[in-house]
Computed example of a mutant assay.
Amino acid sequence: MAPVVPWPVAFMGIDRPESMASVVVWLALLALLVLLVRWRRRSRTRKPPGRPHGTTLGSALSGVRERLESVWSRTSGSAAAWQEMEEELISTDMGVRAARRIVEVVRETAVAGADEIRPVVRAELNRILAGYDRDLHLTGTPSIVVLVGVNGTGKTTTVAKLASRLLAAGRQPLIGGADTFRPAADTQLRVWADRLAVPLVSGTRGADPASVAYDALQAARARGADVLIVDTAGRLHTSHNLMEELAKLVRVLGRDGDRVSEVLLVMDATTGQSGLAQARRFAEVGVTGVVLTKLDGTAKGGVVLAIEDELSLPVKFVGVGEGSGDLLPFDGPAFVDALLGAA
């Protein structure tokens, strides 16, 4: 009686053991090749957490730097020249007060030409940006960090970038998704949380944001997370009710004796001076620092000086790309070098 041949083998016309072994080997090699191709694709697109890989500040601010150099090279000491310099500085979004102060310092030193003006401006900018506490203060267990801001500033992406930085520093973050009004926010957070392998606690659509934030705090305690990062819904700073809701969320997080370590205002750098009005209103809910996003786009950068000079709020981080590692601690001298060119 002839041996029974399994139908897949018979279908392929293989009726000998050595032929079957050959097919198995080829199938194994094919599977290995597929896995290798997929690994190479992922390794090309994957970006390591906590490391910058987007546009650098120097390249982002190159246009501003070139315009300033052009103005300074033509400076002759005339009233028209000083006016042109002031207007160019204002165009960087640094504000009228800071621009006038810089021009006045340059006039008093009686310098002319880009090579002489640049170090004077550098010294004044460094002076304006000095003396701010830019550290991310993480106190308590878990430490609580709340991100706030208007719609479209990049809060949700910033939450993920901050979680990535904390992971790289050996921390164990948990994300609280308290934006219960925008369905896409929860989806976006889940994608990031899965990618970073960070636990996420969120609520149903329309749920009370303060309750969701409190549930996330309880979960952080239960799971042993040492940092809770809370994403809040974007809101217009002119809406009294929405701002009161935000203040309630911060109060609820601190009602069991906990202390909210940081309330970070996420601002879009491309909004320029209009962002100052936002910052003034959000400061009323206890903002401790600013995250300035989208400096890799059309931002002019000078708004950093306006925020700190007029509102006394430290810029703690800047976003220079869309990857998880594109959140950089703000460094005053490095920013001045990016704006004016290295000394």
Results as ranks from 00 to 15, higher is better:
88 E>I: 00
156 T>E: 12
50 G>S: 08
110 A>Y: 02
125 L>N: 14
304 V>K: 09
53 H>N: 13
163 A>Q: 01
314 P>D: 04
94 M>S: 13
99 A>V: 06
183 P>V: 02
104 E>T: 15
116 E>A: 15
246 L>F: 05
121 V>R: 03
167 L>M: 06
214 Y>A: 10
211 S>Y: 01
198 V>C: 09
339 L>N: 05
154 G>Q: 02
104 E>N: 11
125 L>Y: 12
45 T>A: 15
305 L>D: 10
199 P>E: 06
181 F>N: 08
204 T>G: 15
258 D>S: 08
119 P>M: 11
319 G>Q: 06
225 A>V: 01
61 L>P: 07
98 A>P: 05
295 L>R: 12
157 T>Q: 03
61 L>M: 10
310 E>P: 04
262 E>K: 00
248 K>G: 12
324 S>D: 11
323 G>T: 15
188 Q>M: 07
343 A>L: 11
152 G>S: 04
26 W>E: 14
183 P>C: 05
192 W>S: 11
279 A>K: 07
237 H>V: 03
90 I>A: 13
246 L>P: 08
158 T>D: 14
252 V>Y: 06
49 P>Q: 10
231 D>G: 13
248 K>N: 10
328 L>C: 06
271 T>H: 00
264 L>H: 13
128 I>L: 14
277 A>F: 02
272 G>D: 10
180 T>M: 10
220 A>L: 01
112 A>Q: 15
33 L>H: 03
133 D>C: 03
208 D>G: 02
160 A>W: 02
168 A>P: 09
179 D>W: 00
81 A>K: 04
263 V>P: 12
214 Y>V: 01
86 E>L: 05
334 A>G: 15
57 L>K: 07
234 G>V: 01
278 Q>P: 04
7 W>Q: 12
41 R>H: 11
217 L>P: 08
29 L>D: 10
9 V>N: 08
260 V>C: 03
96 V>S: 08
245 E>N: 05
91 S>V: 02
242 L>W: 04
278 Q>C: 03
328 L>M: 15
193 A>D: 03
128 I>E: 14
208 D>S: 03
73 S>I: 00
187 T>E: 15
244 E>L: 12
301 G>M: 10
23 V>N: 09
166 L>G: 01
302 G>H: 14
59 S>C: 01
